[in-house]
Nucleic acid binder design. Structure first.
Length: 168
DNA sequence: CGGATTTGACCTGCGC
DNA sequence: GCGCAGGTCAAATCCG
């Protein structure tokens, strides 16, 4: 069990700083769990998803509740097949589709931007963030949806080595 | 003054 | 083998 997920975000949202309006329109529209993103012929943006019956989004709803009390989740789990290379899970990849006008969504961790790149498939640039905390191999990729620019696709990669932005 | 942010250049992997 | 796309790093700059 890897409970290293940013599940603390819902915790920190609880005791969030008062008068902090960082969430103008924070609502997860879709949620992807990528174990082996971009499998052969597995176009999540295609039409026919391969939803696994044994994989439920209930476990991930915790993330959905990380900013909104409402549980309106249109979570779509894509590609939940594990080929067996989940050993030493140091390569967790999770993608979120969030409806927000700002890509600087504070999830409880300190992120340091380390690169920006223009994607051919989108007229919008892609931002690369990295955890400011040393020892955190966690990387964050933020990109705007090319279909709906009011949506932001955030991809998390890695597991946090600490509990929060301020380690002990 | 320190830390974060920015932009360009550089490197790597894959495809053709 | 070369080209393209994507990803990463580093130096400079700006803000708090």
């Amino acid at each position: 069990m890897d409970g290293n997920y940013p599940s603390k975000i819902n915790n920190m949202s609880n005791h969030n700083h008062n008068s902090s309006e960082k969430y103008p329109n924070f609502e997860v529209s879709e949620f992807f769990e990528l174990d082996d993103w971009m499998e052969e012929g597995q176009s999540f943006m295609g039409s026919g998803y391969t939803q696994s019956p044994h994989l439920e989004v209930t476990d991930h709803q915790v993330i959905d509740s990380s900013g909104s009390s409402s549980h309106q989740n249109a979570n779509t789990v894509v590609n939940s097949r594990n080929d067996g290379r989940e050993m030493m899970g140091i390569r967790e990849k999770v993608a979120f589709k969030t409806k927000s006008e700002v890509e600087i969504l504070d999830d409880g961790f300190k992120w340091r931007k380390y690169g920006k790149k223009m994607v051919k498939n989108s007229p919008n640039p892609r931002n690369y963030y990295r955890c400011s905390v040393e020892g955190c191999p966690v990387k964050k990729r933020v990109e705007r949806d090319r279909e709906d620019q009011r949506y932001v696709i955030t991809t998390y990669e890695g597991i946090h080595n600490h509990q929060g932005p301020t380690p002990f």
